[in-house]
């Protein structure tokens, strides 16, 4: 190694070269031990490095900087919390608006309740209990004829699936002798829906009786099947209109 090569190695050997393999600069060390001139240069470089390190770090740091940075951090933290809160509020508001819009759409399709009209309608129902049944019969494509039942005892109406077909029914109820009320359930079976209805036979169980009612003049093509609690026809009579009522 000559002196120029030694100088180059000195540059590379700096303390920043942490990845140098052990013994990588052994030749340089041997040269420095043998060459007084390069040895002086190496010491000079080391002294300059130390002086440069000291000078480089000799920068006074402003006294208030640390406090300013901590204040900045607090502001940042508060800003993030505010932002998080705003997001939560915005999300909640969005949900409320969405729900509100949904409710608004459905409620807009529904007229507001008119209590005066509601009261008048209820009064009319009590005055004329047959009218709701007439409307119900029409809605179920049944003849709008008066039924032989006491509509004052009507408690429910609907349809029930029998043999896969929706069958309209009316339920009548009246107080019984014991704790259980007496029930009569009237089914409207259409001939075109069921085969052989004319061959139906009345049946009896421990609690119910069935009766077949046909009135081809009033209810053409419809078989009325009434299921009622009791043992005899006498138990059905209280549900039917008396001659005076008809």
């Amino acid at each position: 190694m000559d002196c120029n090569e030694a100088y180059f190695s000195m540059q590379m050997k700096g303390r920043g070269n942490v990845e140098a393999a052990p013994g990588e600069f052994a030749e340089l060390d041997r040269h420095l031990a043998a060459c007084p001139h390069c040895s002086r240069v190496a010491r000079s470089l080391a002294a300059e490095d130390a002086a440069l390190s000291r000078a480089m770090a000799a920068v006074p740091v402003p006294q208030g900087l640390r406090l300013e940075l901590h204040r900045q951090l607090r502001d940042h933290t508060h800003a993030r919390r505010r932002m998080r809160s705003y997001r939560l509020v915005a999300t909640a508001a969005a949900v409320l608006i969405a729900v509100g819009i949904g409710l608004g759409v459905t409620s807009a399709a529904r007229p507001p309740l008119d209590l005066v009209q509601f009261t008048l309608d209820q009064d009319a129902r009590f005055e004329n209990p047959d009218e709701p049944v007439r409307l119900w019969l029409a809605a179920n494509h049944l003849p709008e004829r008066p039924l032989p039942f006491n509509m004052a005892l009507l408690v429910a109406q609907g349809t029930e699936k029998i043999q896969g077909r929706e069958v309209p029914y009316l339920v009548f109820s009246r107080p019984g002798e014991g704790r259980e009320p007496r029930i009569a359930k009237l089914f409207f079976l259409k001939d075109q829906q069921f085969v052989g209805l004319k061959d139906l036979r009345e049946a009896q169980s421990s609690r119910f009786q069935t009766r077949i009612l046909r009135d081809e003049r009033q209810f053409p093509g419809v078989t009325m099947l009434v299921l009622f609690t009791g043992q005899t026809d006498d138990d059905l009579k209280p549900f039917l209109l008396t001659h005076n009522q008809t």
């Binding site: 002196c3 120029n4 030694a6 100088y7 180059f8 540059q11 390069c38 002086r40 240069v41 010491r43 000079s44 002294a47 300059e48 130390a50 002086a51 440069l52 000291r54 000078a55 480089m56 000799a58 920068v59």
Partner: peptide
């Protein structure tokens, strides 16, 4: 000139002015 050998003497206690640096 970076790789050239300088002619120098060691300077112990060398100080460099921060502003000049």
């Amino acid at each position: 000139g970076v790789g050239d050998l300088p002619d120098r003497q060691p300077e112990e206690g060398l100080e460099i002015d921060s502003a000049q640096l």
